[in-house]
Design a protein around this nucleic acid. Structure first.
Lengths: 226, 226
DNA sequence: GTCTATAGAGGGATAGAC
DNA sequence: GTCTATCCCTCTATAGAC
C-alpha cells in the first residue's frame, strides 16, 4: 500500500494514520492496526512504547516537515522583501503550499492525514499542546507579523480572528470533507491543485476585507438570554 | 422545552455532549457519562438503546433546530426579494446566525457542541451521512442557489469550493479552537458576537473574490495517481 | 526484532428485582 | 423508570521463548 520499502515501523505508522482518520483514535485498537500493517501485535509497544507514543509519532512524521517548510518559506520571503511589506498573496501561498503538498502526495499522508488534521485535536490534545508551544506558535507568529505589515490598517484582533478562519478553511478545504461529496460532478475533492487555486483568492480577499465596525459589547447586548 | 429542570434523558445528553467534545466519542465510556450525569449506568441503554443511539441523539438535539432555522431564514429571504438577487451579506448572515446562536447559548450546547461539530464527522460518520442526505443537503442547495443568483459571474465549481471553505471557517471560527488560545489578549475565543462580526465580512469578501484562472489539469500534473 | 500467550483492567449491554 | 449485579467481550501492555 504505502510507498516503497516499508519497515515495520513505517507500516505501523501508515496503517495507524489511515485507521485513525477513518474511525477516530479512540475507536482504533492496536489489534486492528497491527493486523492491517501485517506486523505482530507486540511491535507497537516495542517501537513506540505505547498507543500514545504511536499517536504522537503519527502526527510528528507529517507535521515536522510542514513546520520546517513554513519556516523556510517565510524566511525566504522576509529576505526577498527586506523592509518592504510582502504581498498578501505571497504570504498566503507560502503558507498554503506546504499543507497542499502534504495533501496531494500519498507518500506524505495525502488526504488521509489532512483529514486526521482537520478532525481536530480533541483526541490528541496532549500532543498538540506540546507541539504548538514548541514550534508551531513561533512560525505562526512570523506569519502574523508579515500580515500585519502587509495589512497595516487591520486591527490586530481582527487579524487574529482571520487567521483562525484561514486555518479552518484550509484544513476543511484540503481534506475534501463532508460537503464536496454532496455535490457530485461540481467539484472533485481529490483535486488538490484545484483546491489551492480556489483557496488562495478566497483567503486573500477575506484577509483584505475591510475590518468590521464592532458594536459595543455591553453586558445586555448578548443574545444569551433565553 | 428544556432549560433548567433536567430529566434523566437531558442530563445524559448534556454530560455526553461535553465528554464527547473533550475527549472524543471513542474515548468516552458510558460509565463516565452516567457518573457525570448522576444517573444509573443502565439508563443510557434504557433511554437510547445503545451508545450509538446516544451519539445520534446528542447531534440531533442541536442540529435539528439549526436546520429548521436555516430553512426558515432562506425562505424568508427568497420571499422578501422575489426574483431579485439577494445580497451576499444577507445570505451569509442568515447562514451564520443560527450556528452562532448555538455557540453563544449555553442552553443550546454553547461552544461545547460547536467544538464537537468542528472536530468532524469521523467518529459519527454513520449518523452524519444519514442526516446529510435527509435534511442538510436540501437546505444547503437552497443557499447555493441563492448565492448563484447573487454571484452570477462565479463558475459553479468555484462556488462549491467556496462553500466548503465557508463551512470550515465557520465551524473552526465558532469553536474558538486551537489558534486563538495562543494569542492571549488579542482575541477572546468566548466572544461569539465578535466572532460573527468578524466572520461575515471575511466570508463575504471571500465569496465575492474574482474567480481564479485555472491551470490545465492534464493527466500527468497530479500526484494523486493511485 | 519478532513472536505467543496471557495478565489485568475496563468496555457495552442485559436480566430481573423493586 | 430506576437500580444492582453480572455476563462476556475487547482492550492495552508485558513476560518470556525464539
Amino acid at each position: 500500500m504505502s510507498s516503497t520499502h516499508s519497515s515495520t515501523k513505517e507500516r505501523i505508522l501508515s496503517a495507524a494514520e489511515r485507521l485513525f482518520a477513518e474511525a477516530g483514535i479512540g475507536n482504533t485498537s492496536l489489534r486492528l492496526i497491527t493486523t492491517r500493517a501485517r506486523v505482530n501485535l507486540a511491535a507497537v509497544n516495542y517501537h513506540f512504547g505505547s498507543k500514545d507514543g504511536l499517536v504522537e509519532a503519527v502526527y510528528e512524521r507529517r507535521l515536522g516537515p510542514v513546520t520546517r517548510e513554513w519556516l523556510a518559506n517565510i524566511e525566504n520571503l522576509e529576505h526577498e522583501y527586506g523592509d518592504r511589506p510582502i504581498p498578501v498573496e505571497r504570504i498566503v501561498e507560502s503558507f498554503v503550499r506546504p499543507v497542499a503538498r502534504l495533501a496531494s502526495d500519498e507518500n506524505r499522508g495525502g488526504r488521509i492525514f489532512t483529514r486526521l488534521l482537520a478532525q481536530g485535536y480533541t483526541e490528541a490534545r496532549q500532543y498538540f499542546d506540546k507541539l504548538f508551544s514548541s514550534q508551531y506558535q513561533h512560525v505562526l507568529d512570523r506569519y502574523r507579523q508579515s500580515l500585519r505589515t502587509a495589512l497595516p490598517h487591520l486591527p490586530p484582533g481582527t487579524l487574529c480572528w482571520r487567521l483562525q478562519f484561514l486555518l479552518g478553511a484550509l484544513t476543511q478545504g484540503l481534506c475534501g470533507g463532508e460537503l464536496l461529496r454532496l455535490m457530485e460532478g461540481q467539484a472533485d475533492p481529490n483535486d488538490t491543485e484545484r483546491a489551492v487555486d480556489e483557496l488562495i483568492p478566497f483567503l486573500v480577499a477575506g484577509l483584505r476585507a475591510e475590518a468590521p465596525r464592532l458594536r459595543e459589547s455591553g453586558p445586555s447586548t448578548q443574545g444569551a438570554l433565553a
